[in-house]
Structure formats: C-alpha cells, structure tokens
C-alpha cells in the first residue's frame, strides 16, 4: 500500500436528518446490542453461579488447577487495551488519525497478549486431560462433579475468546476506515462503537475472572 488516500469527510446517511441524530442512533443501537450480549453472557454467568452454588467442592477443586497469576496477567492485558481503545476514541474526536492508529495497534498488541496467555492455559489443560465431560481424564479429583467446572470453564472462556477475536477484527476494521474517512468531533463512530464493544469484553472478563479464578 504505497499510495495513501487522503481521508474524506463522512456524509450523513440518507435517512437521517443530521449528524447528531445519526450519532445518537448508532450509540443507542450499539448499547442495545451490548445489552443483548450482556444478557447472553449474563445468563451464562448466572448458570455458572448456580453451578457454584450446587457444586462448591467441584469448583474449589477445579479452581485449584487454574493459575491465578495467568488470570491476573490477562486481566491486566484487557484493562490496558481498554485504556488504549478509550484513548483511540479520545484522539479520534480530535481528528488525530495517526494517534488513533497508534492506539489501535497498541490495543491489538495487548489483545494478542491475552490470546497468547490463553493459549498456554488451554494447552496445559489439554495436556492434563482437564476437559469437559467424557473427555475428562484428569486424576486426583475427589469430587465426582469436578468435570462440570471444566465444562463451564471451556464454554465461558471459549465464548469470551470468540468475542475477543471479533473485537480484534473491529480494531483492524477501524485501522482500515481511518485511512479512508476523516474522524471529527461529530463523527468518529467506528472507533466509538468498537471501543464500546471492547469495553463489553472487559465487563464480561471482570465477572468471569473472579468466578473462575478467585471465588471458591
């Protein structure tokens, strides 16, 4: 990509009256989407809490096989990328396209860090046979329901990782848009929306982290 196109001003879509209506609509739309995502994850976490209530011993034993240090490291990665995404939006409002791009790249880097740590965690589980249900072959467990913990662990973190990947896709998309469209105080919707989505991923992790790693 030797040729750099000059970013153009955004045009209001045909069915909106003005930028403000468009901006507010997009923001409300994103919030409703986030709301539905929260309901989805929330229902899963409610399921998790109920499992914790039903099988406290299984959760205690399962938790002992997770490394809280890796979990904390990942929390750090996600919080930091949350900061850089907010900074990207902050710069986008001021039309500082270069700084926007730099922060997006930083966020991508932290998100990648999260995935790398996750990879090590997963491969350790696979190695020790700490897998859901019938694939479970870990030994030394006394509670007969210990496998339920790992079933929940993989579904919850798997779904979360899927969202991380989608969020990273959005960051790449923002990088792409930042070359074509000039962000302004009134129009920085792609960065704003991606930032909101990324914050959702943070929110989910903030509950998932203690539920899986900390509470017994």
């Amino acid at each position: 990509m030797a040729e750099v196109t000059v970013p153009k001003e955004h045009e209001v879509a045909h069915h909106f009256d003005d930028l403000e209506q468009e901006f507010e609509s997009h923001r409300l739309g994103m919030w409703l989407f986030i709301a539905s995502e929260i309901m989805m994850f929330g229902a899963l976490l409610v399921g998790g809490l109920l499992l914790l209530y039903k099988f406290p011993a299984a959760f205690a034993e399962g938790r002992a096989h997770l490394d809280w240090r890796l979990g904390t490291l990942n929390t750090f990665f996600l919080l930091t990328s949350g900061l850089t995404m907010a900074l990207a939006a902050w710069h986008a409002q001021r039309s500082e396209q270069d700084k926007v791009r730099r922060n997006l790249l930083l966020s991508l880097a932290f998100a990648t860090g999260f995935l790398i740590v996750k990879y090590f965690e997963y491969s350790a589980k696979f190695h020790h046979g700490l897998l859901p249900g019938n694939a479970f072959s870990g030994h030394g467990f006394t509670d007969p329901n210990a496998h339920v913990f790992f079933g929940f662990y993989f579904v919850a973190t798997g779904l979360h990782v899927l969202h991380v990947l989608i969020g990273m896709g959005l960051m790449v998309w923002c990088l792409f848009v930042s070359r074509k469209v000039k962000f302004t105080r009134a129009y920085y919707t792609p960065v704003e929306q991606s930032g909101l989505y990324w914050a959702l991923i943070d929110l989910v992790w903030i509950f998932l982290f203690p539920l899986l790693y900390l509470v017994a």
Partner: peptide, 18 residues
C-alpha cells in the same frame, strides 16, 4: 467482597470508558 469489587469495576468501566 470479590464480586462487590467486580461490581465497582463494572460501574467504572461503564460510567467512564463507555
């Protein structure tokens, strides 16, 4: 206590970052 702290974090993220 832990979930209480998590709730505070969630309100900070939603209030400021979002």
């Amino acid at each position: 206590v832990i979930f209480g702290l998590a709730t505070i974090m969630v309100s900070i993220v939603s209030g400021f970052l979002m």
